[in-house]
């Protein structure tokens, strides 16, 4: 093979934090979350996991082959974040024999009310506009969250966030590009984009709700109070919406409750599909 060809197809694994690295730190006791941090990691892990599960459905069904790959990349990023957060959370909720729960214990063997994801993440893919609307909200929210979490006093949370924030920054760009194109494309695409935003917007408020856990963690400098993200989120999403000549949807907020395990009717189906095989073979390794 010619040198030029070799340089055009050079492949390297890169160097970044992987879920396996966190699992190793957990096993060797290097990473040990407090009970509060574990619960918090569970929340963020569940958010990312449910979204990855939703996005994975697009692979082989996207509007164009190039977009199969783009959505696949976002799904893989989210799944990576989920695995890191859940692995870390597992160290805070040990099994009866004292060993940490694994990412798979948490993903496959919890019941619906034990999931801590907010309801936005489980909303159906709908058409491409609805998926982009959900991704737009999620990415701008996660970017503000992870950006601040890189400063966490909890070193593992900070490390996961440092890897995630760069990836989520790209998700922001991807979704914003599509918001502009769908809003400014054809009459039909504009109608669908507006509809997509309206179906997702009721679940936005829940993202920014503080509770006792986040207040305690924020005080300790380990996490960020969700309410403090809202100003930047509002400002930056408004910039994109303005450019797209769209308005922030005027729709009532849903009551939410995902953080306490109260979910919309969709999560049960997601879990049924995700968990079915693992539960048919409890204790098996794959």
């Amino acid at each position: 093979m010619s040198e030029a060809n070799a340089s055009a197809t050079r492949i390297t694994p890169g160097n970044a934090l992987r879920p396996e690295d966190i699992a190793l730190e957990v096993r060797t006791g290097l990473a040990k979350p407090t009970e509060d941090v574990a619960e918090y990691a569970l929340r963020l892990g569940d958010d990312a996991l449910i979204l990855a599960q939703r996005l994975g459905h697009w692979i082989s069904r996207a509007p164009e082959l190039e977009e199969d790959i783009a959505l696949g990349n976002i799904a893989l990023d989210q799944l990576g974040h989920a695995r890191s957060f859940l692995t870390y959370a597992g160290a805070g909720v040990p099994n009866q024999d004292g060993t940490a729960k694994t990412e798979d214990d948490l993903a496959y063997f919890r019941r619906e009310h034990e999931f801590r994801s907010v309801q936005l993440f489980e909303q159906p893919n709908g058409d491409f506009a609805a998926t982009i609307a959900r991704q737009f909200v999620v990415s701008y929210y996660q970017y503000e969250l992870y950006r601040r979490l890189t400063e966490s006093t909890d070193a593992t949370l900070a490390a996961i966030a440092a890897k995630a924030v760069k990836e989520v920054d790209y998700h922001r760009d991807h979704s914003a590009q599509w918001v502009l194109r769908l809003a400014g494309g054809t009459d039909e695409s504009r109608k669908r984009m507006i509809h997509g935003l309206r179906t997702m917007w009721p679940y936005v408020a829940e993202l920014f709700r503080d509770d006792e856990l986040t207040e305690r963690l924020a005080q300790a400098g380990a996490a960020v109070a969700p309410s403090t993200l809202k100003e930047d989120f509002d400002r930056l999403t408004a910039e994109v919406l303005n450019e797209a000549e769209l308005e922030v949807p005027d729709v009532p907020a849903a009551p939410g409750g995902g953080r306490e395990g109260k979910h919309s009717e969709y999560l049960g189906y997601i879990l049924a599909e995700m968990q079915v095989l693992a539960r048919e073979h409890p204790g098996a390794s794959w």
């Binding site: 055009a8 390297t12 694994p13 783009a70």
Partner: peptide
């Protein structure tokens, strides 16, 4: 090569298609 509606999306598609492995 690849297909894209404009330069901005062509760059993004190229990133996803041709640099998935740190190329």
């Amino acid at each position: 090569s690849l297909h894209a509606p404009d330069a901005a999306m062509a760059l993004r598609n190229a990133r996803d298609l041709y640099t998935r492995r740190n190329e």
